[in-house]
Amino acid sequence: MAIDPAEVLRIARLARLKVDPDEARRLAKDLDRIVGHIDSLRAVELPEGSEALTCFGRDVHRADEPGTCLPREDALRNAPMQDGDFFLVPKIVDKEEA
């Protein structure tokens, strides 16, 4: 799989990362070499029906018991923009009527 600047821009959009064209060219070069290395995995022979590893451990749950919440000031304290009640963000346009 070769990675070119257009592919970098596609992934960057998915990852919500602003990347300028120069950066995209550099990143394409780096990523292409890295992907070239990791592509070596395709040749690894595995036993039939190999399962993927997901997580160590098994069956961990908690009981349905309410705990304590953060005071609102603490919840909001780190926010770049807030009004004492809500977190504030620029207007959301992506789900409005086209």
């Binding site: 990852a15 919500r16 602003k18 963000v89 346009v93 992506d94």
Partner: peptide, 11 residues
């Protein structure tokens, strides 16, 4: 917009 803000923040 929020979309621009996300990409700028992370960029």
């Amino acid at each position: 917009s929020v979309e621009e803000m996300f990409a700028e923040t992370r960029g």
